[in-house]
Each structure stands twice: as C-alpha cells, then as structure tokens.
C-alpha cells in the first residue's frame, strides 16, 4: 500500500501510508508554498508586472508558476549522476524514482535541464529569461492581452540585447532560449496531467 509523491518540492518521494490523504496534502503544501511565494516576489520585481491588472497578475502567475519553478529548480536535477535532489537534501536516482512510478515527465525534465545548462547562462541572463517565461505563460482568461504582450516584447528585447552584449559571437543562444518556451509549455501540460491523475485517499 506504499504511496509515492514523486516531486522534488516534497521532502521525500515516499509517503507514510498511515497518514490521511488530507495530512499528506497539507505537508506537501507546506513544502511547495514557500517556492510559490518566491515566484510571486520575483514577479513583483519584473519591471512593468505590477502595472498589469491584479486579475492578469494572478492569471499569469497561475499559468506560469510551474514553468518558472522548472527553470529555477533545474539545479535539483543532476544530469551527470541522473539523480534528483528532494527538499530534504537527499538525492534519489532516476532508477529509484522510476520504481516509484515516475514516468515521461522525469525524462523530459532531464532533457530540458541538460539543454538549458549547456547554454551556460549567467545569473542576470537566467533571471531575465525567467521573467520572459512568466509573461509568456498561457494567455487564456487574461483581461488585457495587449498589455501582457507589450510587456513580453519589452522583456524579450532586453533579453536579446543582454545576450548580444554578453555573447557577441553566440546570438544563437537567444534563439535557443526562445525555443525553450514551447518546451516549458509541454512540461507544464505533462505536470498538470500528473496533478490531475494524483489521488489521495482519505
């Protein structure tokens, strides 16, 4: 009857079968809530984000938080060792996580991590890219799509000029980064499917 919740935002992938579904979910929530709050704090510092309507700020954050977290937590995925570090600091091998039910999402996360790390972005570049990721999140339900698109364009322009300045001979990095956006969207969709399929029994 052993259950698993294979998400590095959890302290451990193993779930105590004695605990109720409610308390498992409460504990998991306590683990990922600080990470979500950090994404909100990050969003607040994106120039122009607070000028969007409150409704659109919330919509973008709802749609884009996971994508931002994927970028931020690629450091938890050790591509060489094929292992993932969970919140407790303990590392679990891909084989171990597979035996706990991890599937395609895990492979896709490693692919994404490997490609992103290969670009060797600096801190400022990564931060600007992450801002682009957030404002490029799914547009459904937005009140003012034009304002979001204007913000997205200005951030993409800033990213392009930063990459051009830092890597004058490697402008392909910029194109590769923009191609990460659809990858993130598909990771987000896979993650949503996992969430919907996850059931905790009382």
């Amino acid at each position: 009857n052993r259950m698993h919740l294979v998400c590095p935002m959890n302290t451990s992938p193993q779930v105590d079968p004695q605990k109720s579904g409610h308390s498992i979910w409460e504990e998991f929530s306590m683990s990922f809530t600080p990470a979500v709050r950090e994404v909100v704090e990050f969003a607040k510092r994106i120039p122009g984000f607070r000028d969007l309507s409150e409704h659109d700020q919330v919509s973008l954050l709802k749609a884009g938080t996971f994508e931002v977290l994927v970028v931020r937590f690629t450091s938890l995925f050790d591509v060489k060792e094929r292992a993932v570090t969970f919140l407790s600091g303990r590392k679990y091998s891909v084989e171990a996580l597979r035996s706990m039910g991890a599937g395609d999402l895990l492979n896709s996360m490693f692919d994404f991590t490997e490609k992103l790390q290969a670009l060797n972005l600096g801190e400022e570049e990564m931060s600007l890219f992450t801002a682009v990721v957030l404002v490029s999140a799914d547009r459904s339900g937005l009140e003012n799509v034009n304002s979001v698109e204007a913000l997205q364009e200005s951030l993409i322009r800033a990213l392009r000029s930063l990459i051009t300045k830092n890597h004058p001979n490697e402008i392909a990095i910029f194109t590769k980064l923009l191609l990460k956006l659809p990858d993130l969207r598909s990771l987000n969709n896979m993650h949503s499917e996992q969430l919907l399929a996850f059931k905790v029994h009382p």
Binding site: F32, V36, E41, E54, V58, L61
Partner: peptide
C-alpha cells in the same frame, strides 16, 4: 478537481503573496 492550479490551492497562495505587498504600497 478539474483545474490543476485549484488542486494545489495555487490561486490562494498567489493572491495572498501579491496582496501582502499591495497593502504596503503607498497610494
């Protein structure tokens, strides 16, 4: 649950974190 974001209570966390700073903003 039909909406993964609702499943995680994401909207509630986001609204609280956003509003936390709004209260501090001078009008």
């Amino acid at each position: 649950f039909s909406d993964p974001a609702s499943n995680l209570g994401l909207e509630d966390i986001i609204r609280k974190a956003l509003m936390g700073n709004m209260e501090e903003r001078p009008e």
